[in-house]
Design a protein around this nucleic acid. Structure first.
Lengths: 223, 223, 223, 223
DNA sequence: TATGAATGAGCATTCATTCAT
DNA sequence: CATGAATGAATGCTCATTCAT
């Protein structure tokens, strides 16, 4: 129970050196390499077996490092999972960012973002559903600040605010829905949409079109 | 290795007497009572602690029956969880059914259903998010036929088809989106919407309105 | 721990009504029938699954009687096993008895007995090895008086004494080996011989011949 | 579900390092010591309580190591039992080997081997009967290749072949009995002989003489 | 006499974490 | 920094036996 290492469950915005001691010492190539291997293994296993089906031992073994090394880099299993989930969230962010085309209609922009998500999901099968797993150990405050689902919802909220500011929505409606709320709906819908596409083997382009159209409408944009 | 009981992992459509032997014998009052107590305890604990945080022993103890009795009624922990989840799904169905007012506009109908869901969720806090938990042990086929999430999506799809048949949608659009797909989006959105309402303490009526409006639009109905 | 029924672990020589209360009442047809069905089921299961792999519940179910009925007829699982084992031992006795041809040479007689054992073993596959199972719960005294293995050894000892009395052995040897000791050797050899025949699929007649010849020699008879 | 260790249920011919990973890495002193303590404890308990009466936990406790350590060295209880049984079988082999006196008559040689067995059995009371226990979980093929009883029978068969080659048997008989078959008879007879000696408290030398004489005859050698 | 639901101590096994080397 | 053997509380589940009906 005693913990002389700093807990890193909640500090999402920290750098890659989450595990670094307070000293200003250099990160050491060897150390970085271990961590990289561990995270890669963690990703593989969390996707394949889920949070509860994956043991720290399995991660270490797949990473090719000693079992004890795991705890040199993560305070516990949960910290490792969150590191994985946040990594995935960041990747997805970059991925969709790259898909953004300025000077296009909101509909086009939305479609591009959705396309980015679907593409990412195809390129990294299982990552999103694994990363969005609720590990059921977070408090309400922790969920708000560190759960990948909430972080992603906030990203969408930002996007929506931007679109609103650009005045791309119909003006004939007093649509003052909370952007963060809309962000949640979108994340939920995309999550289920991807699950549906996977379960029933839907072709990517059709999936992108269908999700885009539904979300566009729900946000009251012109289709 | 031997097992007296039929596995009930996949048979969703069965009656409440899931655990009864194949004989047409009477269910026995005592037996029924035990099962009822177990399911009530299971509900309480799965909601409070989640699937992985709940032990069969805890369920038995809370139910006030012997530890072994649990396995007299459920082949294993998972079977008990699915029984709980399906029960919740059925309850929700009845609840929303009761909220349906014929001879009203689709918007009003949709609002009523959403209101039913929100009300149920308020009256049974945590049940939906617990029941929709992915236990990560089902195959694709099992997910399709027995997971509560899929069952609920199908219910929505049925509703949508009904509404379409009643011609309540705008006709100026060739909107042939798969009803089951829409059903998934709705379930995802509602799930996240409820989570948002819970996390940020949103007042019920506002939540109902916001969800309703968004869904209505996503389905291209008149708001 | 309290036991108001009489223990029947050690009383081998009792009649079939082992389980009868002290009253002189008639055995009741229904009662006899239950016991018969239970013993038949026990035989099947002890052979197929072994002592530790068979549960009283399984026996009751296969017998088609209520689970509680088992304990109406046997104080516990062990009593049931011993009843089975002794039944098998008796059967084998009758079987070999029937094979005995008076007025034949010892060699012929021995061969007949062995043939009876092998035949019985073929007709009742697994019974002997199951019945000779050491359940590891008997005290030395109980083993001497009630274990099937000991009973069978005693039967052989009797036979050997009879043969000796008939003066069928070579006289040029002061062979005063304890008949009971010889009985044990024979039982052990036959047990292993049958196991060998089963494992390596030996044809019955060859098996009979080989066992007979070896035993005949070990008893110093003319081959 | 995951398993770091190789199953060792069937691999009898492997070295003492049965539990070592496939790498050629050094066995690690600490690891060896744990295994040694576990096997010693297992021997004590399997002898005293039998297979079904011994729990892995008891073994660990007696060995003075943590409960989990047991499973670091044996895949399961059965693997531990087989390790014990094979160890006993090897010991017995060395013991009897040491008793062999070349340049003596077969009768003398046989007597020496039997004497070795009886001595071993006296020095290690209960080991043989414990090790020869049929755990009833092996398939026919596994029994043939890995059960101690079979291994021991094979050892005897080898001895018999050697004696035959040395031409120590009577030549006036076409005794072509399968050596492996004879090996089985011997093992069975010795097992029962030892049990008899134990049950009825026979003095060692008499026991050795009696068993030797009987076996000698059964193999048709000169007594 | 028969039934079968109920019992709970007991079992084999796991796994997140620690620590000696 | 890295290692991997060790740990032991905890888990899901079993089964011989009891008992209310």
């Amino acid at each position: 129970m005693q913990t002389d290492k700093m807990s890193d469950h909640g500090d999402v915005a920290t750098t890659d050196l989450k595990d670094k001691k307070k000293t200003g010492a250099a990160p050491s190539k060897r150390r970085m390499e271990s961590r990289r291997k561990l995270l890669a293994a963690a990703r593989t296993l969390f996707i394949e077996k889920g949070y509860h089906g994956t043991r720290p031992q399995d991660i270490s073994k797949l990473a090719g490092v000693g079992h004890g090394t795991f705890y040199l880099h993560f305070t516990d299993k949960l910290a490792c999972f969150l590191a994985f989930a946040n990594e995935a969230c960041d990747e997805l962010g970059s991925f969709t960012q790259a898909h953004m085309k300025p000077n296009s209609t909101p509909m086009e922009q939305l479609r591009e973002v959705i396309a980015g998500v679907v593409e990412y999901s195809n390129a990294n099968p299982g990552v999103l559903s694994a990363a969005l797993t609720n590990t059921n150990v977070l408090t309400v405050e922790e969920v708000k600040t560190s759960s990948p689902m909430e972080r992603w919802s906030k990203n969408w909220a930002d996007l929506i605010v931007r679109w609103r500011d650009e005045g791309v929505w119909n003006e004939d409606q007093d649509d003052d829905a909370d952007p963060l709320f809309i962000g949640h709906l979108i994340v939920g819908a995309i999550g289920q949409g991807l699950a549906y596409g996977y379960l029933y083997n839907i072709e990517s382009n059709k999936l992108i079109d269908d999700i885009t159209r539904s979300l566009m409408r729900s946000m009251n944009g012109e289709v």
